[in-house]
């Protein structure tokens, strides 16, 4: 089933267009790594603060950088789609790809939970105050999931069969 979807996708005009330009792939890969650095660097800083590091810095000050983490995510979403649409066959049967998507989902749901349920509690936290356990769990889960996304992404050619 996945293979027939991949075969269909590969035959679309968009997929053909992506494969028409030989330099598009390495350019998108470079952008994917630049986006990764922004996303993991900034999100990781917030996660460490949620875990209780750098307590003298307010959480909201670090959150002000989050739009740039989202820029990194947007870059990686677009370039990731280029990879998937360009050569779908190397992902649909790739266990590392599903590992990456799973932890992407965990990281996303975790971030949504933080923003919708815990976000308002950030302001009640005084400077220098330790973070509550709920913050620590969210921070640890976020850090772990993003590192897992990075791990499975990097392992796509080795556990799976892409390049």
């Amino acid at each position: 089933m996945e293979q027939s979807f991949a075969t269909w996708l590969h035959a679309t005009a968009l997929s053909q267009a992506i494969n028409y330009y030989p330099w598009l792939w390495p350019i998108c890969e470079s952008l994917h790594f630049i986006g990764l650095a922004l996303l993991v660097g900034i999100t990781g800083t917030l996660d460490l603060r949620l875990l209780g590091f750098m307590r003298s810095v307010s959480i909201s000050a670090i959150r002000d950088f989050m739009p740039w983490a989202i820029v990194g995510f947007a870059i990686n979403l677009v370039t990731g789609l280029v990879f998937f649409i360009g050569l779908p066959r190397q992902y649909v049967d790739n266990v590392a790809f599903y590992g990456k998507m799973f932890f992407l989902l965990v990281a996303g749901l975790n971030a949504m939970f933080f923003e919708t349920r815990l976000g308002s509690r950030v302001l009640t936290l005084g400077p220098g105050e330790d973070t509550p356990p709920s913050f620590k769990i969210v921070g640890a889960l976020s850090l772990f999931s993003w590192l897992a996304v990075l791990y499975f992404g990097r392992m796509l050619p080795f556990i799976g069969n892409s390049f």
């Binding site: 993991v40 900034i42 002000d64 740039w68 791990y151």
Partner: peptide, 30 residues
């Protein structure tokens, strides 16, 4: 290779935070 990517994220990510702060992002961060 995975460690090389992780190191990249730490090095460039942390430097990007400093760069962005100097460019005016997140002024609440002293």
């Amino acid at each position: 290779l995975t460690f090389h990517t992780l190191g990249l994220a730490i090095l460039v990510g942390a430097n990007a935070v400093v760069d962005l702060r100097l460019l005016g992002v997140g002024k609440g961060l002293p």
